[in-house]
Design a binder for these strands. Structure first.
Lengths: 192, 192
DNA sequence: AGCGTTGCATAACGACTGTTATGTCGTCCA
DNA sequence: TGGACGACATAACAGTCGTTATGCAACGCT
């Protein structure tokens, strides 16, 4: 059956190969054969687990989103998730995060040409904003927690982090991790 | 000669066709034949004016950057370029700006897989930041014009506008022009 | 013990890719 | 008035693309 553990595991192996191809060749270099080559296998395996390229990329991106969302928060021994560490988690501060952000940026070209992918992206960003909004409520002083203020701060921070991510991925030398952190901390303190 | 007016004009016609293809098909849908079709011509004309696809895309993107930089600032009858209107000019507030921003976002996939394009992008963003920095100096109150503060505000605003642009292009319904303007104005007032 | 099903490999399909070669007009120049 | 040259069109090249069909070995079930 399609729910078998081995089956699901193999689909995730293929998805991981997709990530590796996207990381060093982008969507423009993503082909069934390239994925198979990355797996040291033939295209038969790819078509066996995915009926089409669109389903393959959809699955790989969705799995990447899940993995990024549930991966263990590294430092921040505090236990409680605060706004700052949640935002830091999305920035490309280490190699793994650099890779996944690189993949997202590459995927936008496909998303803009394909309504199916575009809708998935919009949903993901809406969910991401909702998560940030919950933390912004705790972040703002008690007197400023009206909905409008919360929404505005949330979207401002979300846009800022996204834009910073794009620049850090496109030009890593100009945005080393310390610089990214300093800019985020500066903005957070300016917003209260 | 390669400097003839007609020659240059024809190269710009081809570049404009590239923009149109990118706008509705992205880099993934950009082929020599698609550009020719957009021109109601054959691939002969494309290869006649550009020796390779890379040179074609480089030229088209560079011309787009120049056009965007020198296009007449619309409203703002004030005459003097201030920070707010400079940032508004880069946001996808109208159809034309939506199109060009869409093209830039699509181009990142190609840029990340191609060092040549990546370097051109990094240069462009550095230049854009430098232009913003000059306006930030006038924007900040006199007491806060130290280099560090100016740089931080510049990069913060630059990242914010870039991230907002990405979201507005990927999900226009969530970010109508009024919302983009409100978010920018909110951030500008929070930064002083 | 036989048999269907799973998990691949291999090969081929037509379509499309960037690039190159060749042909054919018209225009300008001597 | 011929002849080079620019501006294309046409066609072909070898390669890659996503997808489909077929083959085959191993394994589980009855």
């Amino acid at each position: 059956m399609t729910g078998s553990d081995a089956y699901r595991q193999r689909r995730e192996d293929v998805a991981a190969a997709v990530w590796r191809v996207l990381d060093h060749a982008g969507f423009a270099g993503l082909s069934m054969r390239a994925v198979a080559r990355e797996l040291d296998a033939t295209t038969g395996i790819v078509t066996h687990y995915f009926p089409s390229k669109r389903e393959l990329t959809s699955f790989a991106l969705e799995l990447l989103a899940q993995r990024s969302a549930t991966r263990a928060r590294p430092a921040t021994a505090k236990g409680t998730a605060d706004l700052r560490s949640a935002l830091l988690d999305t920035l490309p501060l280490d190699a793994a995060s650099q890779t996944s952000n690189r993949i997202w940026i590459s995927s936008w070209d496909a998303a803009l040409a394909d309504v199916h992918h575009a809708a998935e992206h919009a949903d993901r960003y809406r969910g991401s904003r909702a998560k940030v909004a919950g933390l912004v409520v705790e972040f703002l002083p008690e007197g400023e927690r009206d909905d409008e203020r919360v929404d505005r701060v949330t979207e401002t921070l979300h846009s800022f982090v996204l834009g910073l991510t794009v620049q850090a991925v496109l030009d890593p030398a100009a945005y080393p991790p310390e610089r990214q952190i300093a800019l985020l901390d500066g903005l957070l303190s300016d917003l209260v």
